[in-house]
Structures are given as structure tokens and as C-alpha cells.
Design a binder for these strands. Structure first.
Lengths: 120, 120
DNA sequence: CTAAAACCTCACGTTGACGTCAGAGGCAAG
DNA sequence: CTTGCCTCTGACGTCAACGTGAGGTTTTAG
């Protein structure tokens, strides 16, 4: 498939896909005329990349970790890296839950009738 | 207290505090010579701002919501806004949990002895 | 009184993940 | 064969939350 098809199927922009290639995250073969061609596995690859981006990993970090996934082998360093990122995500989840509770408090605080608005 | 003290107590840079003021998130009185002065409540205000930033809210959004918190009154619009942000955070938490599980899978997959590394 | 430390206001620099535009070539349909 | 959409490679633009440096004033310690 060509880049436009992949973009449509993954809901990721063409520009982003080229950027992923530029960052070494997504490989492509080229047609005789130089157009990028992708296999079906590219779809899941893009999804994985998106998930990792969404989790706050940088291109550089993803680029360092994807080869391990492809080879299904990890070095002690990459395992440490993966675990570190997982821990960071767990921390972030905890912070988000706190922020969410904070927002809920704000909603309660401001929407529950109180003296300030009872008479407005 | 002056800006340096507030920065020390909140672990937020002086530049950031000035930026918050610029964005309308943090008020200050000024000394005769023009230096910013803060009360003790500023500490919690900064912490709240940090939490909301950490939760992915923009300066603009925070600036729109903080007055409601201060007044302890919310308009239907701001309530909707708060709820929308909370929902967004919940979504993000869910995505992060998926990404975390994905990372754990990657750790398992690459660290468990397998044919590829048993003989290395 | 003086030197260091803290503060002030511009105002430009940084970073990451793309958006966007320019100019040129490629490809299926009628 | 030409129209129209897709793709290519640069390369500059964007946006947010600050960082950083210049040049100058204020406060504080000794």
C-alpha cells in the first residue's frame, strides 16, 4: 500500500508517517519511481508508535526501543529503559488521577449551591 | 514573600512564576519599587496550577477556570468545561494504562529467554 | 558604603511533532 | 493525452511553556 492508504487506515497524517520514517521508527520499501510502499504490518506498527507517543515517549526513545521489539530480544539497558518508562507512566497515571480528583472537587465546589449563589 | 522565596518553596522557576502572572494565572501585589509580593496562599495556587498543567490543561483553559474556583461559583459553561477536561483526563489515564501494559508486554517478550537468545 | 544577590523588563532562543507551501514528477481514467 | 489526484523532497512555520541573556535597579549582608 502507498502512504496515503496507510494514512487513511491509521488516521495518521502523511506528514507524520514521513516523519516517523525520518526518525527511524517506520521502514518502507520504495517503488521504482521512489514512492513509499508499506506492508500490512505497518498498520500495527503505526498504532504502536502512536501509543508510545501518547504515553509520552520521545522519538529518540522509541527509536531505541523498537529494534528490541522487532528482534524480540532486549539488552539489560533496554530492559531498564522499558521499566523506567513504565514507572514514569505509572507516576503520570497517579498524577492524572490526583488532577482528576482535583477537577471533581472543583466541580463539586462550584456547582453545589452555596451561600454565594443561593441568592443570585 | 518575594518571587524567589515562592520559587524555592514551590520548586518552580522564577521565570515560570512570571509567566503564570503573564498568563493571568497568578496575581501579585507590587512593592513600592515594583517587586512582586505574594501571600502564603500563592503556594497552593502554584501547586494547583502545576497540577493542572500536569494534567494537560493549557494556560488558556486554566485561566478560564481558575476564576470559578476563586469565586466558588461556576457557570454552566465552566462546569461543562471542567467535566470535559475530567473526561479527557480519564481517557488519557486509560490510554496510559494500555501503553503501560504494552510496555510490560514488551519487557516480557524481550526478556524471557527464547530461542533467539538461548544460544547466544 | 559597597559588593553581592535578588529583582525588574524586554526580547530572542529552545524543543518536539508535526503543518504547510513550493516546485516537480508519477499514475489511473476518460 | 490531459486532467486531476497522489507522491516526492526540501525547507520554513507553529505552538506552548518556559530558558536565557542583556542591561539596569533594589535589597541585603558585612
Amino acid at each position: 500500500m502507498r502512504i496515503g492508504d496507510l494514512a487513511t487506515r491509521t488516521q495518521v497524517s502523511v506528514r507524520a508517517l514521513r516523519y516517523y520514517e525520518e526518525q527511524g521508527l517506520l521502514a518502507s520499501t520504495r517503488s521504482r519511481s521512489g514512492q513509499r510502499l508499506y506492508g500490512d504490518t505497518a498498520i500495527n506498527r503505526v498504532r504502536l508508535i502512536q501509543q508510545l507517543y501518547g504515553a509520552g515517549l520521545s522519538s529518540k526513545t522509541i527509536a531505541e526501543l523498537l529494534p528490541c521489539v522487532d528482534a524480540k530480544v532486549s539488552t539489560p539497558e533496554s530492559r531498564e529503559r522499558l521499566a523506567a518508562e513504565r514507572d514514569r507512566i505509572n507516576t503520570q497515571i497517579a498524577e492524572l488521577m490526583i488532577a482528576r480528583d482535583r477537577l471533581n472537587d472543583m466541580i463539586d465546589l462550584t456547582s453545589r449551591p452555596n451561600p454565594k449563589c443561593d441568592y443570585v
